[in-house]
């Protein structure tokens, strides 16, 4: 009897949240999958089912492939830049935990993660500016030829990687810091007694023990890397004339197809591709974790 009453309470309490959740998350996810199979154009009355035709078209759409390649490069670029840096910085901040400056370091590294994206991107837009920016001024000062950062096909992708890494670093450092704080102190003391240097215990103790954290941060960084949009938008958005090279990324291509070419079904099929990538990354993370658990 009591159990039933409790069950009723649980159902009643969860119901509003569940309803909202179903409406704003489950339904649209299902709808994305459905739309991807239709030729669903905003303006036309006819919205026929076309099976996998959207996906077939995607495979030959060079703008989409461009976007896919760019996005992948950006995501892995951010990963390669962020994770090692975060690990080292977190280790050093942890080493200096007791110093008065630790709080400052933590805040400074973390602030880029919380400031609004658009103003931050504006700041970088100026830094990278080919004619007015301090980056080229610095290069010039050292006699290195100046670069047109935002216009070169390769450099403009690097600019986005730098911007995204700048923003992602703080989060990774923070998570690593938590990881360091949870490491058993006794192990380090034992290592020290065995004559291991700080650097040695970092390599041989911290890194292996932080592997689950590294995996987690990597996947989070990669997934958010695959969703990059605002950075590309702001760095290249039309100030009239010569704003910068448009680095096509997945979300941008998706929104363009949906709201500019009005091909919502086609855009949905891009979203499905994005979903598959993210799912794959997450699955890889889980399986790697499990493997580690067995070993």
């Amino acid at each position: 009897m009591l159990k039933r009453k409790r069950f009723i309470f649980a159902m009643l309490a969860i119901l509003p949240t569940l309803a909202i959740f179903a409406y704003v998350r489950l339904y649209p996810i299902a709808d994305t999958l459905r739309l991807s199979l239709y030729q669903w154009n905003i303006l036309s009355k006819n919205k026929p089912f076309i099976g996998l035709a959207n996906f077939r078209e995607l495979m030959g759409d060079h703008l989409f492939l461009d976007a896919l390649i760019n996005t992948t490069i950006i995501a892995f670029g951010v990963l390669a830049l962020t994770i090692p840096m975060a690990l080292v910085i977190a280790a050093l901040i942890f080493h200096r935990t007791r110093s008065r400056m630790a709080g400052f370091y933590e805040t400074a590294v973390f602030i880029p993660h919380v400031v609004s994206l658009v103003p931050a991107a504006m700041a970088w837009k100026w830094i990278f500016d080919a004619r007015l920016g301090p980056l080229n001024a610095l290069l010039d000062f050292f006699g290195i030829p100046m670069q047109s950062w935002l216009f070169d096909p390769v450099l403009s992708v690097i600019c986005i990687i730098v911007l995204c890494s700048w923003q992602a670093l703080g989060y990774a450092v923070l998570i690593y810091l938590v990881g360091f704080k949870n490491l058993p102190v006794s192990l380090y003391e034992a290592a020290k007694l065995d004559g291991a240097s700080g650097r040695q215990s970092f390599w041989h103790l911290s890194i292996p023990m932080l592997k689950p954290i590294t995996l987690y941060v990597s996947v989070v960084t990669l997934v958010s890397g695959f969703n990059v949009y605002a950075q590309a938008f702001v760095l290249a958005s039309d100030a009239q004339g010569a704003p910068g090279r448009q680095v096509r990324v997945l979300v941008l291509d998706m929104l363009e197809n949906s709201f500019r070419n009005y091909r919502v079904g086609y855009a949905a099929s891009e979203a499905v591709v994005l979903l598959v990538i993210v799912l794959a990354l997450t699955l890889i993370q889980f399986s790697m974790l499990r493997e580690k658990g067995k070993a």
Binding site: R6, F7, F9, A10, M11, I14, L18, F21, V24, R25, L26, Y27, P28, I29, D31, T32, L35, V223, F226, N227, Y229, V251, M254, S258, V264, A267, A268, A271, V272, L274, L275, V278, L279, T282
Partner: peptide, 28 residues
């Protein structure tokens, strides 16, 4: 409230947590 229904619902919440917002924002 660890009823089976609740556990299933929780799994559902968790499973969709990894779906990026960008994936379903157009239908939304």
């Amino acid at each position: 409230f660890r009823f089976r229904t609740m556990n299933i619902l929780f799994a559902l919440f968790l499973a969709t947590a990894i779906v990026p917002f960008e994936v379903y924002m157009i239908p939304l």
